[in-house]
Amino acid sequence: MLIFSVFKTLTDQQVTVELKNDLSITGVLKSVDQFLNIRLDNIQVLDAARHPHMMAVKNCFIRGSVVRYVQLPAEHVDTQLLEDATRREAANPSKR
């Protein structure tokens, strides 16, 4: 649940999602769910010429299981808070 909470705090921020098929999509994080499925609005695809099928797509839903990375806006991530929350969750694994 911890990572889900982190993504929730980042809604309406700009993120870049890199998929396992090497497609990179930048957009505004509109929502996320418990599976870390991600909804991005106003997207831009890296190397758009190689992905012509994405040209007409503005908003998209990405299945969590196909995500490799998400690049986060560092200025909106409180690393101290993250570490404390991670230690707390590690001490209380029932909430995982």
Binding site: L19, N21, L23, P52, M54, M55, A56, V57, K58, N59, C60, F61, I62, R63, S65, V66
Partner: peptide, 21 residues
């Protein structure tokens, strides 16, 4: 079946007309 889905994209009908293919 959901596990086969990578991405679901909303097709913007205005943008679709501009696609140079």
């Amino acid at each position: 079946r959901g596990e086969n889905v990578v991405l679901l994209g909303e097709i913007d009908l205005d943008k679709e007309d501009e696609v140079p293919l």
